[in-house]
Nucleic acid binder design. Structure first.
Length: 785
DNA sequence: AACTAATACTTTTTT
DNA sequence: AGTATTAGTT
C-alpha cells in the first residue's frame, strides 16, 4: 500500500538525484532528459505520439476503449517534464476517480524514474477543489478548517431545515431536496440563479429559498458539501479575478481525463483556468459517457471545438485490448447510438472467440451457469483475477455471492459498500471529528446518544433550541445547559460527562500518537463496548472494521490529516495478491480490463434500465447502450452475455425479455448457446420491448398516494398543533426580552410554568417557580409575561 | 427514554 | 424479502 502524505506539502521538484552538472541550474527534469533520450516516445503509435507531442494550444483526444488513453496522458506529462517546459507544480491534471488519480501518479513516476513525489495538482476535481478552497476559504465565507459533509450529514441538515420551515417531510422528502440541490450545484447554479420552474418542483416553490437557507447553514457550520467543493471554487474564481489569475499563471499545462464525464460546474471551472494558458488537453470517449444521471454533460465533449477555438482533435482508434469478435460486437452495438462523434475501432489482433449469448431460467441459474464456466476456466489454468462479472445493478451481485460461497470460489466485490460509508466507521470518525472540531454539530448529533446515554429526543430538542437562540454550536449549548437545572439530573450528568470526555480527548491531541488517541476515544466513549456487548452476527465484523480503521490511520501523520482523507477519498484500497473473481457494477468497471468478462442480466428493463427509460427517454436508452458497450469492451479475450427469463425483484417473480441490445449485436460476432431447450429469442420480441416505455407506473399505489397528497395540499387543512412555530415565537420573544430580565420579573417557562426571577448570572437565571420551586434555567427558555 | 410492533421503502449508477 | 424508520407502549 502506498504511504499517503497527510498534508501534501507543495513540494518543489525534489532534488533527489546527484548533481551531475553543479554549475548549471537547469531543471532536474531537463538534465534527466539529456542523459536519457525520449525512448518513451518510441513505444507509441503515430496518433498517440501526436497526442503527446502536440503541446501547444487546446487538444481533444478522442480515445476509444482500449486505445491507450492513460498511456497518452501519462506520457504527455512525462514529456512536458522532460522538456523542462513546466515543473510538476505547474501542471494541473484532473481525473474523475481517486483510483485513476492513483494510477496516473504511479505511472508518471515510473516514466520519470520514480522521483516525482510532488505532482501536487494531480487529483480528482474534488480533491483539487478542496485544496484551492482551503487556501482562500475566507473569500467564500468559510474558515480554512472547514469540514466536508457526507451524504448522511447533508440529509440530516436538510431535515432540520424542513422542520424549521414547517414543511411536511412526508410529502417533500429531504433526499429529494438534497438531490435537487446536488443537481443545481452540478450545473454551477447558485440559489438565485435557480430557474423558477425548478424551484416550484419542491414544496410549492420554496426550493430556491431552502437552497439559499441550506447554503447559509453550511457557512454557519463552517462546512461544505461535495457539490460546494466545485461550486464555491467557481464562485471564488468568478468573484476574485486576482485569485483566478494566480492559478491561471501557475498552471501552464492542463490535462483532463474522462472529459465526457465532466459536469457543467467542472467545465466552467476548467474554462476559467484555461483562459490563462490554453494548453488544455482533454481526453475522453463520448461512447463511454455513463454518468449523465449525475450531471455529466456529453455536450462538453461534443462542443469542444467551439469552446476552445483552434482546438486540435486526435482520434485514437487502434484498440490493443480486445480480440476482433469482441470489438466487432461492441462496435456494432454502439453504432445504434445517434449523436456521437464517431470512431471506428479496429484491431490488428486475432479474431478470437465469438461473444457468447445464453439464456437462463432465472437469476439463480444464471449464477450457476457462470459459476460452472468459471470453474471450467480455472481447471484450464486461468487465474481468477482475470475473470470479472459485470452487473447493471448491485442487487444482482447477491445471487453470485451466494453461488460462489457454496462453490468455495474466492471473489472480491469492487466498489461495493464503501468502507467509510459503513455505520461503525462513520460513528467512529464522527467521534474523531468532534474531538478535533467541537463545532461540528452534525457529527455531534450523530453520536450524542450512540452508545445510549439517555440523551434522547427531548434533550436534543432543548439543546437545539438553546443553540439556535444563542447562535452557538451544540457543544457550546451543552456546556451552558449542564450548568442549569434545565435537564433531568440523569441527562444532565450524562451530557456533562460527554462534554468533559471530549475536552479531555482534545487536550490529548498533541500529547499522544493519533492512533492511540483514537483507540482511547473509542474505548472511553463506550463505543467499542457497545459492539462487544452486541450479540448479533455482524457485531464481530464491525469490531474488525474498527480495528482496520485504526490500522489504516497509522498511514497518516496526524488525526487531522486522516480526517481530510476520509471525507474525500471514500474508497479503501482493494486488496490484491489473492486470486479472486472480480464482481462489480458496469459503472465501476470503467477503465478496467479482464481476459474474461461475464455480462449477466441483459434483460429488458434491467440493462436498458427501466428507470433510465422512464426518466430520460431516448437519451437514457443511449446511455444504457453505452453502458453495455463499456461492459463488452472490458474483455480482452472472452465475453459471455446472459439473460434470465425470470427475476425476483421485490420478492415478486417477474418475467423479463432479453435485452434489445442482444438483438443489436452483429450476428457475425455472436454465438448463441441454445443449450437448455430454452425458448429462443427472436426479433418479434422487439415490439414488446417498446411497450416497456409505457409500462404501468401510473396505477401503482405510490402514484395514487402522491395524487391524494397533492389534493390535500391544495385544500387548506385545519391548523394543526405546531411545535415549531411555538418554538419560533418563543425564541423571538426571549431574545428580545433577554436583556431586561431583572430580579423580580415574572416569567413563563415551558416546563416549570410561571415564576419570578430571583437571581441573574449572565444568561443563567435562578427562578422561583410557583409550582416547581427554585430552579436554575437559561434565559432563552423563559418568556416575560 | 427505551423497547416493541407496525409500516414504508427499497434496488442504478458515485465524487 | 429484507431493512429502516416510525408509532405506540411501558
Amino acid at each position: 500500500m502506498v504511504k499517503i502524505r497527510a498534508t501534501a506539502a507543495e513540494a518543489p521538484f525534489p532534488p533527489d538525484e546527484p548533481e551531475a552538472e553543479p554549475t548549471e541550474t537547469l531543471p532536474l527534469s531537463q538534465r534527466a532528459m539529456r542523459r536519457r533520450p525520449a525512448e518513451y516516445l518510441d513505444a507509441l503509435n503515430p496518433e498517440q505520439r501526436d497526442a503527446v507531442e502536440s503541446l501547444d494550444g487546446p487538444l481533444l483526444v478522442l480515445a476509444g476503449a482500449g486505445t491507450g488513453k492513460t498511456r497518452v496522458l501519462t506520457t504527455r506529462i512525462a514529456h512536458i517534464l522532460s522538456l523542462g517546459l513546466a515543473r510538476p507544480g505547474e501542471i494541473l491534471a484532473v481525473t474523475f476517480t481517486n483510483k485513476a488519480a492513483r494510477e496516473m501518479k504511479l505511472r508518471v513516476s515510473q516514466l520519470i524514474g520514480g522521483v516525482v513525489e510532488g505532482m501536487p495538482w494531480l487529483g480528482t476535481f474534488h480533491a483539487i477543489g478542496v485544496k484551492v478552497l482551503r487556501r482562500h476559504a475566507e473569500l467564500v465565507g468559510l474558515k480554512p478548517s472547514f469540514t466536508i459533509l457526507d451524504t448522511d450529514d447533508q440529509i440530516r441538515l436538510i431535515k432540520q431545515l424542513l422542520a424549521a420551515e414547517n414543511i411536511d417531510e412526508k410529502r417533500w422528502p429531504a433526499r429529494m431536496l438534497a438531490a435537487m440541490i446536488d443537481g443545481w450545484k452540478n450545473r454551477g447554479l447558485v440559489p438565485k440563479r435557480v430557474p423558477d420552474g425548478e424551484s416550484f418542483a419542491f414544496a410549492s416553490g420554496k426550493a430556491r429559498d431552502l437552497y439559499a437557507l441550506y447554503q447559509r447553514r453550511l457557512k454557519e457550520l463552517n462546512a461544505a458539501d461535495f457539490g460546494d467543493l466545485l461550486l464555491e471554487n467557481l464562485r471564488l474564481f468568478q468573484e476574485h479575478p486576482d485569485v483566478l489569475e494566480k492559478y491561471q499563471q501557475r498552471f501552464r499545462y492542463m490535462l483532463v481525463d474522462e472529459y465526457q464525464d465532466t459536469n457543467v460546474a467542472q467545465y466552467l471551472w476548467l474554462r476559467l483556468l484555461a483562459q490563462g494558458s490554453d494548453n488544455v488537453c482533454c481526453v475522453g470517449d463520448d461512447d463511454q459517457s455513463i454518468y449523465g444521471w449525475r450531471g455529466a454533460e456529453v455536450d462538453n465533449i461534443l462542443r469542444f471545438e467551439t469552446d476552445f477555438p483552434g482546438a486540435k482533435i486526435i482520434r485514437l482508434e487502434r484498440n490493443y485490448r480486445s480480440t476482433g469478435h469482441i470489438l466487432g460486437a461492441a462496435s456494432g452495438l454502439i453504432a445504434h447510438n445517434q449523436g456521437r462523434l464517431g470512431k471506428t475501432l479496429h484491431t490488428t489482433g486475432a479474431d478470437g472467440d465469438k461473444v457468447e449469448v445464453a439464456g437462463c431460467w432465472d437469476d439463480e441459474e444464471e449464477a450457476r451457469v457462470i459459476g460452472e464456466d468459471i470453474e471450467q476456466l480455472q481447471r484450464q489454468g486461468h487465474t481468477l483475477n482475470e475473470v470479472a462479472i459485470l452487473v447493471r445493478a448491485s442487487f444482482q451481485m447477491r445471487a453470485f455471492e451466494d453461488r460462489f460461497i457454496t462453490l468455495g470460489l474466492d471473489y472480491r466485490v469492487i466498489g461495493g459498500p464503501r468502507f467509510y460509508e459503513r455505520q461503525e466507521i462513520r460513528d467512529a470518525t464522527a467521534y474523531f471529528e468532534v474531538t478535533l472540531n467541537p463545532a461540528n454539530d452534525l457529527k455531534f448529533e450523530r453520536i450524542v446518544n450512540t452508545p445510549r446515554r439517555g440523551l434522547g429526543e427531548a434533550t436534543l430538542k432543548s439543546l437545539h433550541q438553546l443553540a439556535r437562540a444563542r447562535g452557538v454550536p451544540l457543544t457550546q449549548a451543552a456546556r451552558l445547559i449542564v450548568e442549569t437545572e434545565e435537564l433531568k439530573p440523569k441527562a444532565r450528568k450524562s451530557l456533562a460527562d460527554l462534554i468533559g470526555a471530549f475536552d479531555r480527548w482534545r487536550a490529548l491531541i498533541d500529547g499522544m500518537s493519533h492512533t492511540e488517541l483514537a483507540e482511547l476515544i473509542l474505548d472511553e466513549s463506550g463505543y467499542t463496548a457497545m459492539w462487544q456487548a452486541d450479540r448479533s452476527p455482524q457485531a464481530q465484523s464491525k469490531l474488525e472494521n474498527l480495528k482496520e480503521l485504526i490500522r489504516f490511520m497509522d498511514e497518516f501523520d496526524t488525526l487531522a490529516g486522516f480526517m481530510e482523507h476520509v471525507s474525500l477519498v471514500m474508497d479503501a484500497a482493494t486488496e490484491e495478491g489473492t486470486d479472486r473473481v472480480n464482481l462489480m457494477t458496469l459503472h465501476s468497471a470503467k477503465g478496467l480490463e479482464f481476459d474474461t468478462v461475464f455480462l449477466p442480466g441483459w434483460d429488458e428493463g434491467l440493462l436498458p434500465h427501466q428507470r433510465s427509460l422512464d426518466e430520460t427517454g431516448r437519451s437514457g436508452l443511449e446511455e444504457e447502450r453505452r453502458l453495455a458497450h463499456v461492459g463488452l469492451t472490458r474483455a480482452r479475450k472472452r465475453a459471455k452475455i446472459t439473460f434470465a427469463q425470470n427475476r425476483r425483484n421485490h420478492g415478486m417473480w417477474q418475467t423479463a425479455l432479453p435485452s434489445r441490445f442482444i438483438d443489436e449485436l452483429p450476428v457475425d460476432h455472436v454465438e448463441v448457446a441454445e443449450d437448455k431447450g430454452m425458448r429462443g429469442y427472436g426479433p418479434s420480441r422487439f415490439d414488446t420491448a417498446e411497450n416497456v416505455f409505457a409500462s404501468g407506473f401510473y396505477d401503482t399505489p405510490g402514484w395514487q398516494r402522491a395524487q391524494r397528497n397533492r389534493q390535500q395540499g391544495a385544500t387548506p387543512s385545519a391548523p394543526r398543533r405546531d411545535p415549531l412555530t411555538i418554538e419560533g415565537t418563543l425564541v423571538a420573544a426571549s431574545t428580545a426580552a433577554g436583556a431586561g430580565l431583572d430580579i423580580g420579573t415574572r416569567i413563563f417557562h415551558q416546563k416549570f410554568g410561571y415564576g419570578r426571577v430571583a437571581q441573574v448570572d449572565g444568561n443563567k437565571l435562578t427562578v422561583d417557580f410557583e409550582k416547581a420551586g427554585r430552579k436554575m434555567v437559561v434565559d432563552s427558555f423563559v418568556e416575560r409575561v
